[in-house]
Design a protein around this nucleic acid. Structure first.
Length: 501
RNA sequence: GCCCCCAUCGUCUAGAGGCCCAGGACGCCACCCUUUCAAGGUGGAGAUCAGGGGUUCGAAUCCCCUUGGGGGCACCA
């Protein structure tokens, strides 16, 4: 396979979709595996819905995943690079116009003057007759005089491509031989709107031809459209590329993944603290496998193993739990400095939202890493995990302070004793975890308490929660002063509750 | 409605005629570790390979039918 050329051709009519990201990934892996070229092309001919903001979201998302393209737009709304440019369809309009007039001149396409109302009426009639929708061909054989008459009326014609009777067969790279009768294509289809803007089926072929795309790897939703594309390649006198249709990513109910039923914007996953390594790993394994039992694979490792033979044919449900597990795997593999750097954004978000009152320094975070890293399913979970370290006034539910096997009285005693033990026995200078544990265990033993109960009371008093990183490390992170202050506050709270109750 | 595609544990999948009365992973359960929560370790439940016919000495693997699911059929991409 000499230097295959593949592309991802998203439309900036919405944020980067997780399914588009996966298609991009598969194309990228294919190109890297075979020493080919990965191209990004923006299909922005739907002017009404395309925006630069979406364009930016798409480029950023692909960059973030590490799917660097060899040719294509450099920046949202900016220039592009590569010998086949431009790579934005709205900048290639002359080429579509030229191709269209060529097809028109050779009578492979013709102007159609049907109004939306006429087409709608046709569709309704076909529906009532239980016929599949198709263009009836009203304008297929208009005489030059008839065309001139419509033009004179001021009617603008759309351009329709003549679909010849034929059976189109092609060898799909993942599905094998596929054959479709052109009679089932819905009749002659529009390739250029009445306003002169070209339509998807047309632009995609004109561009894939012009850019010498050798392998079209895309979602299965395009399988039925492939004959139209093949017809167009042939009409344009260009070699037909190879096609490979990937299985769809599905909602839990096994319908095509949609915004309505699933989270589909890549940026949302990013905002929640999924790391790109995990997303890439997860997406690659949705519909493809190495054929071995390897599961945790980096982008480079995936590229070294990728092949279309192991692509699954059936759709794959997006399993978020599995993504979270993979994310945890990758978070645990991050180098300390890297983790700290990536956590910053999420801490700032917590700070901006008022969930914490102070931002920890990188040094402070580094000290926390040993107890935090393996407890982060996502980066966004950091505040939930140890945010209590950075709040000024900790809200504690008095009910929660009392361990299950204890009553309020015992809890109050326990906390007071623990407070004194900590203050008297543990010096203000060192205050280290292995210096905290023995005296508190000793205290529990002396009073006949289960150490776990005492520790739980302290834990809740000082963090407000029943689930935290290991207690003594947590106390150290909190510091002697705040530990004592929070114990005092909890003692007061319990005393007041007791007096009130 | 018409056309196309698909079908292995709940989910992602291994499996390309005998190694499979089906392996791994997520999730779930139990136990171990343990101050809670995680992580980790060990074990377990979980698939008559959608159903039915063939082909074959032998089928999850090949063929046909049925059923089920999905996708496509725009002057959207």
């Amino acid at each position: 396979m000499p230097n295959p050329r593949v592309r991802i051709a998203p439309s900036p009519t919405g944020p980067l979709h997780i399914g588009t990201a996966r298609t991009a990934l598969f194309n990228y892996l294919f190109a890297r595996r075979h020493g080919g070229t990965f191209i990004l092309r923006l299909e922005d001919t739907d002017v009404a819905r395309s925006t630069v903001a979406f364009e930016a979201d798409i480029l950023e998302g692909l960059h973030w995943l590490g799917l660097e393209w060899d040719e294509g737009p450099d920046a949202a709304g900016g220039d592009d690079r590569g010998p086949y440019g431009p790579y934005r369809q709205m900048q290639r309009l002359e080429r579509y116009a030229a191709a269209a007039s060529d097809l028109l001149a050779r009578d492979l396409a013709y102007p159609c003057y049907c109004t939306p109302d006429e087409l709608e009426a046709d569709r309704r009639a076909q529906e009532e007759a239980r016929q599949p929708p198709r263009y009836v061909g009203r304008c297929a054989n208009l005489t030059p005089a008839a065309r001139a008459a419509r033009e004179a009326e001021g009617r603008a014609g759309a351009l329709r491509f003549r679909v010849p009777p034929d059976r189109i067969r092609f060898e799909d790279l993942v599905r094998g031989e596929v054959e479709i009768d052109t009679a089932n294509l819905g009749g002659d289809f529009v390739i250029v709107r009445a306003d002169g803007t070209p339509l998807y089926h047309f632009t995609v072929v004109v561009d894939d031809a012009a850019m010498d795309i050798s392998h079209v790897i895309r979602g299965e939703d395009h399988l039925s459209n492939t004959p139209k594309h093949i017809l167009l390649f042939e009409a344009l006198g260009h070699a037909v590329p190879q096609f490979g249709h990937l299985p769809l990513i599905l909602n839990p109910d096994r319908t095509k993944m949609s915004k309505r039923k699933s989270q589909t914007a890549l940026s949302d996953y990013r905002a929640q603290g999924f790391v790109p390594e995990a997303i890439v790993n997860f997406l690659a394994l949705l519909g493809w496998s190495t054929g071995t039992e390897e599961e945790i694979l980096s982008l480079d490792e995936l590229a070294a193993r990728f092949d279309l033979d192991h692509v699954q044919k059936g759709g794959a449900v997006f399993d978020r739990e599995r993504l979270e597990w993979l994310n945890g795997q990758w978070v645990r593999r991050l180098e300390p400095d890297e983790l700290i750097a990536r956590l910053e954004l999420f801490l700032e978000a917590d700070f901006d939202a008022g969930r914490i009152d102070r931002l920890p320094s990188p040094e402070e975070l580094r000290a926390l890493l040993p107890i935090v890293q393996e407890r982060l399913p996502t980066l966004g979970a950091i505040g939930d995990l140890v945010g209590f370290l950075w709040v000024d006034d900790l809200a504690v539910d008095p009910e929660l302070i009392i361990p299950k096997r204890w009553d309020a009285r015992t809890t109050l005693e326990g906390l007071e004793a623990a407070r004194d033990t900590i203050e008297e026995a543990i010096g203000p200078v060192t205050f280290e975890a292995d210096e905290l544990e023995p005296p508190l265990r000793g205290l529990a033993e002396a009073r006949g308490w289960k150490a776990g109960d005492l520790f739980m009371a302290i834990r809740v008093a000082v963090t407000g929660r029943t689930a935290t990183p290991p207690l003594f490390d947590t106390l150290v992170a909190l510091g002697r002063e705040r530990t004592l202050a929070r114990l005092d506050a909890a003692i007061d709270l319990l005393a007041r509750e007791g007096a009130a109750g």
